[in-house]
Nucleic acid binder design. Structure first.
Length: 274
DNA sequence: TTGTGTTTTATTGCCTCC
DNA sequence: GGAGGCAATAAAACACAA
């Protein structure tokens, strides 16, 4: 069976030339007898050396019919070599092949497959790393969103408190202020003031009885509204009431000049309501 | 024992580099 | 154009549950 010997010549085990195991197997099958699986299982996993392979005594019994797994020792050495360097220079390939009793082509194929396995594992590792990073970021984001919601609702409740205090302050100021001393319209203005005070008094549990000296007290001059600029300043008191009725107000002060008067900016920003 | 899924070994075709 | 690498794939070997 000379063809078998030629087949295992390393120079013939070249890419593009006769393929040394798969096609070799076919050659052997076609040229000689087909071996049974039982016979195959009796054989060692692979030749331990090229010399052994070409040994006439072993030849008939060790025809490489099918794929053989490498021995644990061979795999161990290949793994060690791969750890040192995952690429295979021609010299190293030849040396390894000699040492392991394999064809250089087998060593090359093993390294190629090993690189493919390493790449697959690397992709898995990268995926795991990215996934854990993503999960961590996601949980951080969730807690930040909750924190943001909490702070927003805090801002809303504090803003409402401030508005309520502003309204009370404005109502008290309006009650103390009499823009029409001696005027005929003073009567109606006074009636509105009575309404406002009545409401405030009933809130605080005080007496709702109107002091007829009220207007005189308001003349003390402790007012936000100089009478020259606000000759008919009865509206704010009514607006206080409408503001209370209208819970959907925009939260702004009804006395635009009031804020300007104190040189303050708007107490809260538009973004709070967006 | 057998069916099935996984791993390992090997091939093929294409691509790049020198 | 040859050598070598890689992706895709085939097929044998192996592991394991039913």
């Amino acid at each position: 069976m000379e063809s078998g010997r030629l087949f295992f010549d390393p120079s013939a085990c070249h890419r593009g030339s006769m393929l040394f195991l798969g096609n070799c197997d076919n050659i052997f099958r076609g040229g000689t007898t087909m071996m049974s699986m039982e016979e195959t299982s009796k054989r060692p996993p692979f030749f331990s050396s090229p010399d052994e392979l070409l040994d006439d005594d072993n030849y008939d019994e060790q025809l490489p019919e099918k794929k053989r797994r490498l021995t644990p020792e061979q795999v161990h050495l290949l793994e060690k070599s791969f750890e040192a360097e995952n690429k295979l220079e021609p010299d190293r390939k030849t040396q390894l092949a000699k040492k392991l009793g394999l064809q250089p082509r087998q060593v090359a194929v093993w390294f190629q497959n090993r690189r493919a396995r390493w790449k697959t594992k690397q992709i898995e590792r990268d995926y795991d790393f990215l996934k854990s990073s993503y999960d961590s970021l996601l949980s951080n984001c969730d807690s930040l969103v909750k924190e943001n919601e909490k702070l927003k609702s805090e801002v809303v409740s504090l803003t409402e408190k401030i508005q309520a205090e502003d309204r009370v302050g404005a109502a008290i100021s309006a009650q103390k202020f009499d823009p029409f001393p001696g005027d005929i319209t003073h009567v109606s203005a006074l009636r509105v003031n009575v309404k406002a005070e009545d409401r405030l008094s009933s809130r605080s549990g005080e007496s709702a009885v109107v002091d007829e000296d009220g207007p005189q007290v308001m003349d003390s001059g402790d007012s936000y509204f100089p009478s020259d600029n606000y000759p008919y300043c009865v509206a704010p008191v009514d607006m206080v009431q409408s503001e209370e009725d209208n819970k959907s107000g925009d939260g702004r002060n009804y006395f635009p000049d009031h804020d300007q008067h104190h040189g303050e900016e708007e107490p809260f920003s538009w973004w709070m309501w967006s």
